[in-house]
């Protein structure tokens, strides 16, 4: 049949185009992985584009030891975990109010949260830097008594930035859940706290899981704030600390590639462990009931 045939060729073309694009997308990553296994001397002699003579794990060993990978990985976890938990908690509370207590402020509020996402973070850097130098914290948090150069400060920035998007997604998700559930809870005499903690929060669980995965990768991958708001080298997360492998004049790119490959392993693990949630997270709130 004619229609069947065209749709089949159409499909073939689509697969072809998609394959080409995915190859383009994957190529630099594969190239990085290949470089990470090549010894420096080999690349210097024959050039980056040459076919490798032999492969080695020596870059990984040096990158791990030289860059003190563990320390910086733990720094990343110390920032990402509290930031994600706090973001999700605050955003689900806001989403709850915005979706269940309709008022004339709901829509403007939601727009405000979404608009906040559109501000480039670079624009906020100077004022934030000045503010952080003025905010004093107890000395057990930072020896020089300022919010600047603390992991707490970094967590707060991430929460402030991510809450907007999380609120937007969670509000839309809650709107897909029948209001009748809430109404019957109110009829049964649940107060606001019970309503939130015992009805809404459990219902939000799938959305929170998806969003949690997304935010973990985003915050883990952050480079900008870590570089500008932390002064102390040892407090930096792994993304910023990777550049420790770069030198003033000469950089061993094979070593750097090995470091980068190690740094993306946790993101990959999170992704594969929670793949289902990840995909769900991307389409979250896109179908409004």
């Amino acid at each position: 049949m004619v229609t069947g045939k065209t749709s089949k060729t159409g499909q073939r073309i689509a697969v072809g185009v998609l394959s080409v694009f995915s190859m383009i997308w994957v190529a630099p990553i594969l190239f990085t992985i290949l470089q990470s296994f090549r010894p420096y001397d080999d690349v210097i002699k024959k050039g980056v584009m040459s076919w490798p003579n032999h492969l080695t794990f020596v870059n990984y060993y040096h990158a791990f030891v030289q860059s003190r990978m563990w320390l910086f990985f733990l720094n990343s976890v110390e920032v990402a975990v509290p930031a994600v938990v706090l973001t999700l908690f605050l955003a689900s509370m806001i989403a709850f109010v915005l979706s269940r207590y309709e008022s004339r402020f709901s829509v403007p509020m939601l727009m405000l949260f979404t608009a906040g996402n559109l501000l480039p973070p670079q624009l906020l850097f100077i004022p934030l830097f000045r503010i952080y130098l003025k905010i004093h914290v107890p000395h057990f948090i930072n020896s020089n008594g300022l919010l600047y150069d603390t992991q707490l400060g970094l967590i707060l920035v991430h929460v402030a930035i991510q809450v907007g998007f999380a609120t937007f997604v969670l509000t839309n998700f809650l709107r897909t859940i029948p209001k009748e559930i809430s109404e019957s809870a109110l009829v049964d005499g649940a107060n606001v706290w019970n309503h939130f903690f015992r009805i809404i929060l459990p219902l939000l669980r799938p959305a929170l899981a998806s969003l949690g995965v997304l935010m973990t990768t985003w915050i883990y991958n952050d480079f900008f704030w870590a570089v500008v708001l932390l002064k102390t080298g040892n407090k930096r997360p792994i993304t910023a600390a990777l550049s420790n492998l770069q030198g003033e004049f000469n950089t061993d790119y094979n070593l750097l590639a090995a470091g980068a490959c190690m740094a993306f392993i946790p993101t990959l693990l999170v992704f594969f462990a929670m793949r289902k949630h990840f995909v769900a997270g991307l389409t979250l709130g896109s179908t409004k009931g």
């Binding site: 570089v227 002064k231 102390t232 080298g233 040892n234 550049s243 420790n244 770069q246």
Partner: peptide, 12 residues
């Protein structure tokens, strides 16, 4: 000692 990589040190 507070060691920060050269490029970021310079940029910041």
């Amino acid at each position: 000692l507070n060691a920060v990589d050269h490029n970021n040190f310079q940029n910041n």
